[in-house]
Structure formats: C-alpha cells, structure tokens
Simulated scan of single mutants.
Amino acid sequence: MAIANYTDLLAEAHRQPDPQRLLFVFAKAELPDHPDAQQRERFERGEGGVLTPALCVDKTLDELSDMSSLVKESRRTGVEWDIVFVAALAGDGVTPPTSEEAEGPLQHMVEALQMGSIGNFLAFDRQGNAVDIQ
C-alpha cells in the first residue's frame, strides 16, 4: 500500500501482525550556516534549507488518533516544527515495544536525520500529507 497521508500510515500500522510503536522526530526548516543569496531566496519561498531535529517522541497506536491531535499535542511543548519524520518499531507479537526499548532506535533516528539520511523514514507536513523530500 502506498502511504499518501498520516491516516494511511496509522491504518497500515494497525494491519501489521506485530503491535507497533511509532517513532516521531519533529524537524524545523532552517537556513544553513552562512547561506548565500540564492539559498536565502529559496528558503524565503518555502524551499530548501536544512531540517533540524527539534523534538522526538514515541507512541503506541492506542495513543494516536489523527494528525490534528498530534499537532495539538506538539503545540503544548512550545517547540516549532515543519516536518515530522516517522518510523515504526515492531513488538513481540503480543505487545508493542516499551518506551525504554524505543529509546535507542529513536536516538539512532535523530542521528540519521542530523546526518541527512532520511530515506528510511516517512515524512509528513502539519496537515498530515506525505512529503517527498529530495
């Protein structure tokens, strides 16, 4: 199944044979250090820039409902973000992984994103639409 939005992601996660815990890294678009005029112009048009991890969290499927709820919850942190990257962590067939078990994979996810390695993650905008980041 092609995942076109956050709703599709949740539906696909619910279909998996093993219980899932979803890992979220919220990232903020920023200008790179020492941007040139072209980079600054593209960024002002809403293009380009660098995505910097700003906040991360893990959730079981029972803790998730829709994108607007996720956005509302993130607002309470006071941390601004533009794109959320998501990965799934499968459980043991009976229960999803615990938050403690998700700590290492979530940290690896943050590190991968800091290095610009985004290919293993789904990305969504604040409206819940899948984003293809080139």
Results as ranks from 00 to 15, higher is better:
residue 100 E to M: 05
residue 106 L to W: 06
residue 114 Q to P: 00
residue 129 N to I: 02
residue 10 L to S: 02
residue 80 E to M: 01
residue 127 Q to M: 09
residue 43 F to Y: 15
residue 65 S to H: 09
residue 77 T to G: 01
residue 14 H to Y: 12
residue 87 A to E: 10
residue 76 R to G: 00
residue 59 K to F: 12
residue 8 D to S: 09
residue 78 G to L: 05
residue 28 K to G: 01
residue 35 P to E: 13
residue 68 S to D: 12
residue 44 E to C: 01
residue 37 A to N: 08
residue 3 I to T: 14
residue 65 S to V: 05
residue 14 H to W: 12
residue 102 A to H: 06
residue 103 E to C: 04
residue 91 G to A: 03
residue 114 Q to T: 06
residue 134 Q to A: 14
residue 27 A to I: 02
residue 83 I to V: 15
residue 15 R to G: 13
residue 44 E to P: 00
residue 4 A to N: 14
residue 61 L to D: 01
residue 10 L to H: 05
residue 57 V to H: 11
residue 34 H to L: 13
residue 53 P to L: 08
residue 93 G to N: 07
residue 47 E to L: 15
residue 58 D to E: 14
residue 61 L to G: 00
residue 26 F to K: 06
residue 112 A to Q: 14
residue 7 T to P: 00
residue 45 R to G: 03
residue 86 V to I: 13
residue 11 A to F: 06
residue 85 F to S: 06
residue 46 G to K: 12
residue 77 T to H: 06
residue 99 S to Q: 13
residue 6 Y to P: 03
residue 87 A to D: 15
residue 35 P to M: 06
residue 94 V to G: 00
residue 99 S to I: 00
residue 16 Q to H: 14
residue 131 V to Q: 15
residue 75 R to S: 04
residue 71 V to P: 01
residue 106 L to I: 05
residue 63 E to L: 01
residue 12 E to L: 09
residue 97 P to N: 09
residue 31 L to V: 07
residue 90 A to L: 11
residue 96 P to H: 12
residue 82 D to A: 02
residue 65 S to F: 10
residue 49 G to D: 12
residue 45 R to I: 02
residue 18 D to R: 14
residue 103 E to M: 10
residue 110 V to A: 03
residue 64 L to M: 12
residue 2 A to V: 08
residue 24 F to W: 12
residue 105 P to D: 08
residue 92 D to C: 03
residue 74 S to K: 07
residue 43 F to S: 11
residue 96 P to W: 04
residue 13 A to G: 02
residue 11 A to P: 00
residue 116 G to N: 07
residue 79 V to F: 04
residue 71 V to R: 11
residue 131 V to I: 15
residue 127 Q to V: 02
